[in-house]
Amino acid sequence: TVVANPEEYMKHPLQNKWALWYFKNDKSKSWTENLRLIAKFDTVEDFWALYNHIQQPSKLGFGCDYCLFKDGIKPMWEDDRNKLGGRWLMTLNKQQRHNDLDRYWMETLLCLIGESFGEASEDVCGAVVNVRPKGDKLAIWTGNCENKEAIMTIGQQYKERLSIPSKALIGYQSHDDTSSKSGSTTKNIFTV
C-alpha cells in the first residue's frame, strides 16, 4: 500500500489571504478607476506563480504602484482598517531603482506573507511600492499609529531585512498627517 504524503502535494498555506493591486496613472480616469486588483492568493506556491509572472517594479512606468494588502483591506487611507494607521516609508534615490528597488520589494513581500514581525504582523495592513521620476518609495502600512510597540518592532525588523545601515533612519508617518499635509514632507511620528 502506498500512502501519499500530504507534504508532497499540498500547497503551503499562508497565515493570511493577500490581494495584489496595480495602480496605473491615467489622468483621464479617477484614482479608483486606475486601481486594479490583479489577483489574490493564500499559499506560498500561488504567491510565487503570481510574482514570477508579473513585471518587477523597476520595469513599471512612472506613476505606477503595486500594493499588497490583506484580503478585505483596500489600499487606500479611507479604508476602515487603514484610517487610524500609518506607514514606514523608505524613499529611494534614482540610482537605487537599478540597484535595490526590486530586491527591496521582494523582501517586503516575503516579510508580509511570511509574517516576519511575530505578533506585530497582526498590525500590518499591507505594503506599497510607488515608481516615481523623483525617486521610488516603499512602505509598509500598519493599522493603528498609536500602537508604538508593534510599529517599532516592524520598523526595526524591516530595516534589518533590507540591510539598511543603522545610521540611515527611516520614518513612520500617520496617514492622517500624510493626507492633510500642506507641504511636500510629513512629520515622522517614529524613526528607527
Binding site: H12, E45, W48, N52, L110, G114, S116
Partner: peptide
Amino acid sequence: GKKQYDREFLLGFQFMAACV
C-alpha cells in the same frame, strides 16, 4: 498555530512548478 515562514523557506519555492 500561526503560519510563519522565514525567507529561505519561502525562496525555496520560487522556481518549483505549481503542481496542484
